[in-house]
Write a protein that binds this DNA or RNA. Structure first.
Lengths: 339, 339
DNA sequence: TTGAAAGCGCTAACAA
DNA sequence: TTGTTAGCGCTTTCAA
């Protein structure tokens, strides 16, 4: 059924070794033999058995990507955009992608350990880094190659790409205060995520820059889903002294907040300003279109992937710790002067 | 560095074979030996080398999933929901997922051929089936296991899960005509996709059931993205005799249409009715919330995965061709009587 | 320019 | 109950 080197060898009357070398264009094989072998291989529909190659070569040409999910019905477009960037770049370099989903915790760590010890991939891509990240601690400790989208807050050194989230939030706050907002709420991400810290810091800095006090009761933590944003925003909006603006730390929560505001009878972009973070494709098409901070997620996926491949191949890299400057996308959800 | 069976064998003073059998609890190994081996394996941090196992066993315990993408920045939440269902179920059964992205065409077919011939996966999951689907033709021909989400229109027999899209669209049209709509536009999917046919048929049947003529100029094809929906809807809405309702064949296009309507100064759910198809998580949280046809995408991902695993393992299956009944989710985007 | 032989780490048939 | 042997398909010395 499957064609192996042996089959080709028999057909052309040469040894397996010669066939192998002919196929990979070693220069100690005569041109005639090469041609013969190539032709036979093509005709017979030969494709190398990857597992045999990997066993022999001791590398896998595979990149690991374990998506950290919270709850069963996860559906953050953020992940599909990232995966697309990753997948396309990996394919370009001839790498496979081993993808699984695991919610953060012991199960997740076991998955990493097994994959590392079984040498199932050449390296890992990490996403949604945590302030104290046991995945990173483990990989650094074992010296296993990986590149992260995001940083940690401890002293570990490793290659990453990240966006300057603090700057992003400062831009948001500057934009809002510029339109006269003083009571600005913040829908924060779960604390353990590193970008929660950066975005919250940026929020505080922005307020400080504008000479405004921060009302801590206006800072609430959500779970990065629409539902979470919706529920938190409801609570904020039911307060007596409600905020005039809500800065959500990702787009999905912002969408939830928009719905909450609308159910409360407020016109978003007129009675209340709402902003997001990420600029997923949907942000441009929501109603109203969402003011948000652009993260080139697709591009970051591709960057991280290329960095990892270079790392694995021991190729030189210009930079191993890259921080991107974010851009504020002003759209209708916040683009009005507070009266 | 890595611990192998040989290392354990040396440590416990037994043969490699015995160690192998002890680890997998063969009953021809003495309890004492088993315990010894298990303990040693644990202490030494043994993890089997998957590639060696696969080479030997001639199976891969891996499922292939090639995501068909159109254009670089693809970001359909549909895919991430499906992937989540797939991934979780695969993990449950101990299968890996080999994921890539390829846009339909020759490149895509080459990827399938190479993976099949290199025996890189035990089976494939297919998505977004085409009326004449060369992937399916190839897999059927080679007898390679796969399960599809969706059907084809030719005579090929293969296992699939699909939703009764025609019924779904009939429900939509019935709902709209019940509220007095007569001029209903349809944002159709690219023709080559099988569900384009089913949904369009359903649309026509629904209109016929209501005794209404179909104005062919109101049926336009989009590319399933928000942008596509937006552009097509713009054209529809700029007509002199504009439709009173737009039935989009997926949620993303519906979102685009909503934005187009709003830019035209129409209030969706009052001046115009817009409906979608899929019921992605976003549909509930859009503004206004979107009337749509529910497809349990996450669940379908899990179902398809389990079917494929059974197929691979030659386990009996109750049904191999499953068609699900859709449910109409009526929300504000269409829930009003046309005056 | 070619081939024989060894071995990657594992499983399984067979023998002891 | 255990070990010997062979072999999955491939790459890579080393020798011819």
């Amino acid at each position: 059924m499957t064609v192996t080197l042996k089959d080709i060898a028999e057909r052309v009357g040469k040894s397996i070794t010669t066939v192998s070398r002919a196929l990979y264009d070693y220069d100690d094989v005569s041109p005639k033999t090469k041609e013969l072998v190539h032709k036979a291989a093509l005709e017979m529909g030969y494709t190398p058995n990857t597992f045999a190659q990997r066993l022999q070569k001791q590398r896998t040409d595979t990149l690991g990507f374990i998506i950290p999910t919270f709850g069963p019905r996860f559906s953050d477009p953020f992940f599909s955009e990232f995966l697309a960037g990753l997948g396309n770049k990996a394919a370009e370099f001839g790498y496979d992608l081993l993808v699984s989903t695991r919610s953060p915790g012991e199960e997740e760590m076991r998955a990493y350990r097994e994959i590392v010890r079984g040498k199932r991939v050449d390296g890992f891509i990490l996403l949604r880094t945590r302030q104290q990240d046991s995945r990173i601690a483990y990989l650094v400790e074992t010296g296993f190659p990986f590149v992260a989208f995001g940083r940690t807050t401890d002293k570990m050194t490793f290659p990453f790409v990240d966006e300057d989230s603090a700057l992003g939030m400062r831009l948001v706050v500057e934009h809002l205060t510029g339109f006269g907002h003083r009571r600005i709420a913040c829908l924060a991400p779960p604390q353990e995520l590193t970008f929660a810290l950066h975005r919250l810091n940026g929020f505080h800095e922005g307020m400080a820059n504008a000479g405004l006090p921060v009302d801590e009761s206006l800072i609430v933590t959500g779970d990065l889903t629409q539902r979470g944003g919706y529920e938190r925003a409801k609570i904020l909006l039911n307060q007596l002294n409600r905020p005039t603006a809500i800065a959500a730390c990702n787009d999905l929560m912002a969408f939830g907040a928009i719905r909450a505001a609308q159910e409360t009878g407020l016109v978003v972009g007129k009675d209340i300003a709402i902003t997001g973070f990420d600029d997923i494709l949907m942000a441009e098409h929501s109603n109203p279109p969402l003011t948000t901070v652009n993260q080139p997620i697709y591009k970051i996926g591709a960057m991280v992937c290329e960095m990892l491949i270079r790392l694995i191949r021991n190729e030189p890299m210009a930079e191993t710790q890259i921080t991107l400057k974010p851009e504020l996308m002003v759209r209708q959800s916040s683009n009005y002067q507070l009266s």
